[in-house]
Design a protein around this nucleic acid. Structure first.
Lengths: 159, 159
DNA sequence: GTTTGTGCAAATTTTTTGCATTACA
DNA sequence: TGTAATGCAAAAAATTTGCACAAAC
C-alpha cells in the first residue's frame, strides 16, 4: 500500500507540473479522474470509468472524462488502446513497465507480457524506414487454455 | 495485370467455396464488394468503400457492406485493423504476405514492414502463457522523415 | 414458392460539440 | 473579475438492427 500511495503521489505531482506548464487549471475533477484511473487495476473504457465514478459518489460528466483523458494521454500518464472493438480502452502508464497484450478472443480478457525483441524491431525499423518511432502496440489474439480445453473461460462476462 | 487477374480469380473461387460451405447465397453485391476490395491498393474504411462503389455506379448500401465484410473476415480474405482512430480499417489478405504496420502520427499514412522475430515472439508467448494464438497486430507509430525535417508530410490529407 | 439477402431508415453506441453556469487564478 | 472548465444535452460519427421488398435457390 505504501508503494501504491507513492504512485498516487507521484502521478499527482507529474500531472500538476504538466497542468502548470500548459497553463491549465487544477480542478478537482481532473485530480479525481487521475486518482480513479490509478486505482483501477485493469484496462477500462470511458463508460465504465464514468459509471465507476458515479457509483463512488462523484458528480462528473462524460465530457469532462473525455477532456481529462486527452490531458492524461498528452502527459503520458495514460495509454490508449483499441483491441479490435469499437470502444477505446485506456490504461495507466506511470511506473508500470512497458509491456504488450495478449487478448482472449472469447472473453476479451487482457493478459500482459514483455519481450525485449520488440524494442529491437522498433529501433531497427525506425532506422530502415527513416521513421522517428515514438511508440508501438503489439497485440496477440488467441484462445486461452481454458477456452481450448473446456470450450469456455472464466473471465468471460457475457454468455 | 495477369497476376492481378489471377488474384481476382483466386479470391472469387475461395469466396464461392466459402459461401457454398456455409450455405450463403451468391449475390452480385457480395462479388462486387469482393472485387472492389481487391482493386483497392490501400487500407480502407467502410465509408470510403461505400463512396468508392457509389462513384463507380454500383447501387449498394452500407448495411450490405458491413454484412459482406463480416463474411470476408470470416473466410480470411480480409483483415480488420484499428490504428488508434475510432474507425475500423480493412485490408485484403489473400496472396499478400504477412506484414505489420508503421503509421505516421501526422498524416496517418500506413507503411508496411516484415520482421521474422514477431512470429518467434508470437509462438514463444503462446507456449509460455498457454495460449493458442491465432493472429497478431504490431503497429509502430511515429513521424516520417519528411515530417521530422519539414514539419509536414506529403501524404497528409487535411491541413 | 421459400427463405435469405438487400436497401433504406431508424436505433444504438461511442465520441464530440455548443452553451449556460461554475469556479480557478 | 475574466476566462477556462464543467455539466448537460444535442449533434456527429460509426455501427447495428428491423422490416418490406427483391432475388437466390
Amino acid at each position: 500500500m505504501l508503494q501504491a500511495t507513492n504512485v498516487q503521489e507521484s502521478v499527482k505531482k507529474i500531472f500538476t507540473e504538466y497542468l502548470e506548464k500548459k497553463s491549465h487549471r487544477k480542478t478537482d475533477e481532473r485530480y479525481n479522474i487521475l486518482e480513479e484511473v490509478y486505482n483501477l487495476d485493469d484496462h477500462f473504457d470511458v463508460e465504465s470509468l464514468f459509471l465507476h465514478m458515479k457509483s463512488k459518489g462523484h458528480s462528473i460528466s462524460r465530457a469532462t472524462i473525455y477532456n481529462t483523458i486527452e490531458l492524461l494521454l498528452d502527459c503520458q500518464l495514460l495509454t490508449r488502446h483499441q483491441f479490435g472493438k469499437n470502444t477505446a480502452r485506456f490504461e495507466r502508464s506511470f511506473s508500470f513497465r512497458q509491456h504488450d497484450h495478449l487478448i482472449c478472443q472469447d472473453c476479451e480478457h487482457v493478459f500482459e507480457f514483455c519481450d525485449p525483441r520488440i524494442q529491437q524491431i522498433q529501433s531497427m525499423m525506425g532506422e530502415i524506414l527513416n521513421f522517428k518511432i515514438t511508440n508501438h502496440s503489439l497485440n496477440l489474439f488467441g484462445k486461452c487454455r481454458e477456452l481450448e480445453e473446456k470450450g469456455s473461460c472464466k473471465h468471460r462476462k457475457t454468455a
